[in-house]
Measured scan of single mutants.
Amino acid sequence: MVVWDEDGFQGRRHEFTAECPSVLELGFETVRSLKVLSGAWVGFEHAGFQGQQYILERGEYPSWDAWGGNTAYPAERLTSFRP
């Protein structure tokens, strides 16, 4: 999975191949867009795999509404991930 700290695949970029309990440890404040290259990941609103969670299947997510636009409580950012 590849993530960016700005919408539209802009800004700082990082690629994950294993779980990440906090993007803050990588110098990111948040993740605002992402691409899942294969498989599925779970993205969490807060560090430590806490808060609202989203199943992220293979594909592109250019902004928060692409992963959470249909929920009652959409998270505008993700800060931890698990494959």
Results as ranks from 00 to 15, higher is better:
64 W>G: 07
32 R>D: 01
27 G>H: 05
75 A>G: 12
56 L>C: 03
29 E>M: 11
40 A>F: 05
12 R>M: 05
40 A>R: 15
13 R>Y: 09
41 W>G: 02
2 V>C: 06
76 E>C: 14
43 G>S: 02
77 R>N: 07
33 S>R: 01
23 V>W: 01
54 Y>G: 02
54 Y>K: 07
54 Y>V: 14
64 W>P: 15
36 V>Q: 02
18 A>P: 05
60 E>M: 06
36 V>P: 00
37 L>W: 04
74 P>H: 15
75 A>V: 14
78 L>V: 06
19 E>G: 12
33 S>M: 00
2 V>P: 00
24 L>Y: 11
47 A>K: 11
46 H>V: 06
48 G>C: 13
62 P>D: 04
17 T>S: 14
45 E>V: 05
69 G>F: 07
55 I>H: 12
66 A>N: 08
65 D>V: 13
65 D>Y: 08
19 E>A: 12
10 Q>T: 08
51 G>H: 07
23 V>F: 00
68 G>D: 07
16 F>P: 04
68 G>P: 06
14 H>G: 08
52 Q>D: 12
43 G>W: 00
75 A>F: 10
25 E>P: 15
50 Q>V: 14
3 V>G: 05
9 F>A: 00
1 M>C: 14
11 G>I: 00
18 A>S: 15
22 S>Y: 00
5 D>W: 02
41 W>R: 01
32 R>K: 14
29 E>L: 15
22 S>K: 02
18 A>R: 08
53 Q>W: 10
11 G>F: 02
48 G>H: 12
10 Q>M: 06
71 T>L: 11
38 S>W: 06
8 G>H: 15
58 R>G: 10
2 V>F: 05
73 Y>H: 15
71 T>G: 13
76 E>S: 14
60 E>V: 07
11 G>Q: 01
57 E>I: 04
58 R>Y: 08
10 Q>N: 10
58 R>A: 13
61 Y>C: 01
15 E>T: 15
82 R>S: 07
4 W>A: 01
55 I>Q: 08
13 R>F: 09
53 Q>N: 05
2 V>D: 01
24 L>Q: 13
26 L>T: 02
45 E>W: 02
55 I>D: 13
46 H>W: 08
25 E>C: 11
41 W>A: 01
49 F>I: 03
44 F>Y: 10
28 F>W: 13
3 V>F: 02
37 L>D: 01
69 G>P: 06
67 W>L: 15
54 Y>C: 14
31 V>I: 10
79 T>Q: 12
3 V>N: 04
50 Q>C: 04
63 S>R: 11
27 G>C: 05
24 L>S: 15
51 G>P: 02
62 P>S: 14
10 Q>P: 01
74 P>D: 14
52 Q>V: 11
79 T>L: 12
47 A>D: 14
12 R>N: 15
42 V>I: 12
78 L>E: 02
20 C>P: 01
64 W>T: 13
26 L>I: 15
16 F>G: 02
41 W>D: 05
45 E>P: 05
40 A>Y: 09
37 L>A: 07
62 P>M: 06
6 E>Q: 12
21 P>Q: 12
74 P>W: 12
72 A>Q: 10
48 G>Q: 11
9 F>W: 01
20 C>T: 06
12 R>D: 04
73 Y>M: 08
20 C>E: 05
15 E>S: 10
28 F>P: 02
67 W>M: 06
1 M>T: 01
31 V>E: 00
32 R>I: 00
68 G>C: 08
37 L>P: 03
67 W>T: 06
14 H>Y: 13
62 P>E: 13
26 L>W: 04
61 Y>H: 02
60 E>N: 14
35 K>M: 05
43 G>Y: 03
76 E>N: 13
2 V>R: 04
67 W>S: 06
16 F>C: 07
23 V>D: 00
74 P>T: 12
40 A>V: 14
22 S>R: 00
54 Y>E: 00
43 G>R: 02
5 D>A: 11
39 G>Y: 02
9 F>R: 02
64 W>Q: 11
77 R>S: 13
47 A>M: 06
44 F>R: 03
65 D>R: 09
76 E>R: 14
17 T>G: 08
72 A>G: 13
23 V>E: 06
61 Y>I: 04
40 A>G: 10
56 L>A: 02
53 Q>H: 10
4 W>F: 15
54 Y>W: 14
62 P>F: 10
39 G>E: 05
35 K>Y: 03
74 P>F: 11
62 P>V: 06
